Simulated assay, not measured.
Amino acid sequence: MQSSPGKPHQQRTNMSTLQNKALSLGIDVAVLRCVLILLGIVTFGTWGFWVTETDWTLWRSLYFTLITITTVGYGDQGLSETGQKFAAIMLLGGIGGFTYSITNLVQLTVNRDQAQARKLLRKTMDWESHVIVCGYGRMGQSICEQLRSGGKDCVVIEDDQEYYELAMENGFPAVHGCASEDESLVAAGIKRANSVITAVTNDAENMYAVVSARDLNPECSIISRAESASAARKMERAGATFVVLPHMMAGESVASAVLHPRLTSAMQSSNNPDDRLTLGEAVVEEGSELLEKTVMEYGKQAGDLVFVAVEREDGQLFMRPRGDQTFEVGDVVICAGRQEDVQAIREVAGGAVAV
Rank of each mutant, 00 (worst) to 15 (best):
G97T: 01
S142I: 02
Q11C: 02
V31T: 10
K21N: 02
V175R: 12
G137V: 03
D153S: 15
K85R: 11
Q339S: 13
P8V: 06
G323N: 13
V200I: 15
S224Y: 06
G140R: 06
T65G: 03
T124F: 10
G337L: 05
Y298I: 01
P246Y: 02
V333C: 09
L317C: 08
N217C: 09
S24R: 02
S288E: 02
V254K: 03
Q84C: 00
V35C: 14
S16D: 08
Y163S: 15
L279G: 04
A240F: 08
G40N: 03
A187L: 14
I37H: 10
V342G: 08
K293S: 04
A352W: 02
N272L: 06
L291T: 00
A349K: 01
G48A: 13
R320Q: 12
Q141C: 06
A266D: 09
V355N: 07
A204T: 12
E169Q: 15
P261K: 03
S3E: 12
G189L: 08
T82N: 08
I95L: 04
N272V: 02
E53M: 14
G315H: 05
V283Y: 00
K119I: 06
M319K: 05
P261M: 02
L108K: 14
G239A: 02
T57W: 07
R12P: 00
V72N: 03
V35D: 05
V51T: 09
G280V: 01
I143C: 06
N206P: 15
Q339E: 11
H130Q: 14
A204Y: 09
I69L: 05
L79Q: 05
V196F: 15
S61F: 04
T13S: 05
A229T: 05
E53H: 11
M125R: 14
D215G: 03
G96E: 02
G137T: 01
V353Y: 12
I223W: 13
G287P: 03
G189W: 07
E128W: 03
E340K: 11
V254F: 14
T124M: 11
I27F: 12
L120S: 11
G189T: 09
P218R: 07
G330D: 05
D341S: 14
S61P: 13
L147P: 08
V342F: 08
Q316V: 11
A115G: 13
P218M: 02
D274L: 07
I334Y: 12
G315P: 06
E128T: 12
G140M: 09
D159R: 14
T124L: 09
T68H: 04
S129D: 15
C134G: 14
T278F: 01
